Computed example of a mutant assay.
Amino acid sequence: MTRSEAIAATLPARSFWQRQRWLILRRMSQLLVLLCFLSGPWLGWWVARGNLSSSMTLEFLPLTDPLLALQIMLTGHLPAFSALLGAGLVLAFYLLVGGRVFCSWVCPVNAVTDSAAWLRRRLGLKGGRVPDANTRQWALGGVLLASALTGTLVWEWINPVSLLHRSLIFGLGGGFGVVLGIFFYDLLLAPRGWCGHWCPMGAFYGQLGRVALLRVAAPRRTACDDCMDCYTVCPEPQVLRPALKGRGTDTPLILARDCTTCGRCIDVCDQQVFKMTHRFDQRSE
């Protein structure tokens, strides 16, 4: 019996909740965000007016996508004070908890790409042409440059996040076609292609995650049995190795900006290697 097998034998069996809790909590969070916008049209009780790009919450709290505010400024216009205030509030929140928390806990497209990844594993589909790792950074630069050169919000006309959210709230059908294309792209052509390699919003919010407090860590990394389950489900598997294997860092914390803090590595690891913690927790077991 190996050391990791001996350790696993001492651990209690995990329940369904323990094996799926972070996935369930993320889906509940995404659904709750959507219901906040749907409560007005459905029930006449307006928790949030607008959409993920810009909204007024509880009739007094403005929230604005900071990437949208940046695009507006690059067009040569100054956003309204409420929009600037809303962008500042959202910016402060994601600087605190982690930029790509937006991707895994709020963005409705995440459920689509997660479904494509799940079906790809179930069908046993292998390979695919994955874009270069820096593609989304170039896409972000292109979005900002296009706003500056054209004086318009070019990205907002094709932004799958905005299109899907508006379609879900207002019943518009165009967004569903775009998102269906993303689903089949991830399923058939490039695993985790959109969120992991193309999405400029993911690139933007990733920049906010460099100093975030909320982190996933691998404090029990010595118990890792190299089963690769965490790599299989992780939307950004390249972030795992430094913390898990101590490559280039002594800390068990996952500090990479691309980590979405989704918690799936915690869910699937029977060795209980991972946990949700904060950036000042440097302990290893």
Results as ranks from 00 to 15, higher is better:
96 L>A: 15
38 L>K: 08
250 D>F: 01
208 L>K: 02
209 G>P: 02
212 A>P: 00
277 T>I: 03
211 V>C: 03
250 D>I: 02
104 S>N: 07
38 L>T: 07
152 T>V: 06
16 F>E: 14
69 A>W: 01
118 W>R: 12
94 Y>F: 13
248 G>V: 03
205 Y>G: 01
93 F>W: 14
68 L>C: 04
103 C>F: 03
179 V>I: 05
262 C>K: 00
244 L>G: 05
52 L>V: 05
83 A>W: 08
109 V>H: 04
75 T>K: 00
254 I>L: 09
47 V>W: 00
140 L>W: 02
34 L>W: 08
250 D>L: 03
170 F>H: 15
145 L>K: 02
200 P>M: 07
245 K>T: 10
233 V>E: 13
241 R>K: 15
137 Q>T: 14
106 V>C: 07
122 R>L: 12
96 L>H: 12
156 E>P: 00
149 L>R: 08
174 G>Y: 04
161 V>P: 00
264 R>W: 13
136 R>L: 06
10 T>D: 13
205 Y>C: 01
113 T>Q: 10
90 V>S: 05
187 L>C: 10
208 L>V: 08
207 Q>A: 09
101 V>D: 08
41 P>M: 02
84 L>Q: 11
282 Q>Y: 06
129 R>K: 13
252 P>H: 04
116 A>S: 15
246 G>N: 10
83 A>L: 11
140 L>Y: 04
141 G>T: 11
145 L>F: 06
235 P>F: 00
173 G>T: 13
91 L>M: 14
78 L>P: 03
188 L>A: 13
137 Q>L: 09
110 N>G: 06
92 A>L: 07
1 M>L: 08
111 A>W: 05
69 A>D: 15
115 S>F: 09
278 H>C: 13
256 A>C: 03
172 L>D: 12
54 S>T: 10
7 I>C: 03
185 Y>T: 10
163 L>C: 03
218 A>M: 06
97 V>Y: 02
155 W>L: 05
28 M>V: 14
147 S>G: 03
175 G>T: 05
52 L>Q: 07
166 R>I: 06
202 G>D: 14
264 R>P: 04
270 D>T: 10
133 A>D: 15
109 V>T: 09
140 L>V: 08
220 R>C: 10
246 G>L: 07
67 L>F: 07
101 V>P: 00
197 H>A: 10
61 L>R: 00
56 M>R: 07
230 C>Q: 08
243 A>P: 04
69 A>K: 00
20 Q>D: 08
172 L>H: 12
101 V>R: 02
110 N>I: 02
212 A>G: 04
89 L>I: 09
280 F>Q: 12
121 R>L: 12
52 L>P: 01
77 H>N: 15
269 C>V: 09
84 L>F: 02
26 R>K: 13
191 P>N: 11
237 P>Q: 06
57 T>D: 00
95 L>V: 06
215 R>C: 10
117 A>G: 11
118 W>Y: 13
84 L>S: 10
170 F>W: 14
114 D>I: 04
281 D>A: 05
152 T>D: 10
185 Y>F: 12
231 Y>K: 00
75 T>M: 01
66 P>H: 06
276 M>W: 12
51 N>S: 15
231 Y>M: 01
9 A>G: 09
